[in-house]
């Protein structure tokens, strides 16, 4: 359980990091908080030739509210969780962050690291999908933005090219009619979720609008429950019958894989329950 040898670079700017990525190409791996990459390196499941440590890049640690919430990729999960800006502007992100590992993991783990790692069961990709967040990706040619729906491509796979760096995530400031919630089921506190559900909607005259429901742990990436979203549009989510049907529709199209933690059939069942629960929390917790 010791990592294989590697070369180590510690850039202090995004430009420098991108230069290194271009130079080393696929041989390099970006080291953010290291809470997923280093376990894989210790077990030699990952043996990168070069590590590009982005922990000394100050410009990645910016968290600001300026026409939206912008979280730099290098912001620690614990910093984001305890940020008054996050708690005031988009508290559901803090709700999701509470489920990320444990305090010792969140003290090092970064918001961008979790998103770029793209574990299908992870909380941050799921909440960002539900919030229709936009990722900022920087390469030699400059910055581009990628909506969450196009960002997650599969297990541990994102739209970030080998010579690009995820530099931040942007979430629109929710209006007063916005409601949201995040719930999950895991074997133990701090474990990856068996299933997680994130809900975001607007409540206008008792009717749900702009509904987004994202699920984790049920596919190779976080997925939107399209049929449940369409069903809820214009309906009253305070009504338990409506929530029941939304949960049923959300689970209906899923075909989750089985593993040692839970069979796919269980994950499917739990998906329906969690969608109901997230909807209930979103509209009854107001």
């Amino acid at each position: 359980m010791k990592p294989a040898s590697f070369k180590y670079a510690c850039p202090t700017s995004v430009q420098e990091a991108v230069g290194l990525l271009q130079h080393f190409g696929d041989d390099a791996k970006v080291l953010a908080g290291g809470q997923s990459l280093v376990p894989m390196m210790n077990g030699r499941l990952a043996q990168p030739d070069v590590l590009i440590d982005i922990n000394q890049i100050a410009e990645l640690r910016v968290l600001e509210v300026n026409g939206g919430l912008r979280i730099g990729a290098g912001v620690r999960q614990r910093t984001a969780l305890e940020s008054p800006d996050v708690q005031r502007v988009v508290p559901v992100i803090a709700e999701a962050l509470r489920h990320v590992g444990h305090v010792g993991i969140r003290a090092r783990g970064t918001v961008g690291g979790s998103i770029a790692h793209a574990d299908p069961a992870a909380e941050l990709p799921t909440i960002m999908l539900a919030l229709d967040a936009t990722m900022t990706v920087t390469g030699a040619g400059g910055q581009r933005t990628v909506p969450a729906e196009e960002f997650f491509r599969g297990v541990f796979t994102t739209a970030v090219e080998y010579d690009e760096l995820l530099t931040g995530v942007h979430v629109a400031v929710p209006g007063p009619a916005s409601r949201s919630a995040f719930v999950e089921v895991s074997r133990r506190r701090g474990d990856f979720a068996l299933v997680g559900a994130a809900v975001s909607l607007e409540l206008i005259d008792g009717a749900a609008r702009r509904v987004r429901i994202a699920l984790s742990g049920v596919a190779d990436r976080p997925v939107l429950a399209h049929r449940a979203q369409e069903f809820l549009e214009g309906r009253d989510p305070h009504d338990p019958v409506v929530r029941e049907e939304a949960g049923r529709l959300a689970a209906a199209d899923l075909d989750p894989a089985s593993d040692i933690h839970a069979p796919g059939s269980y994950r499917k069942k739990v998906s329906a329950v969690l969608v109901k629960r997230a909807l209930s929390n979103a509209v009854n917790g107001e």
Binding site: C10, G34, Q35, G104, I105, R108
Partner: peptide, 19 residues
Amino acid sequence: CTVLIDGEPVRSCLMFAIQ
């Protein structure tokens, strides 16, 4: 293996000494 780094609890098996 938890140690405190600048007061924060951190797993010292998930960090390289060089960091």
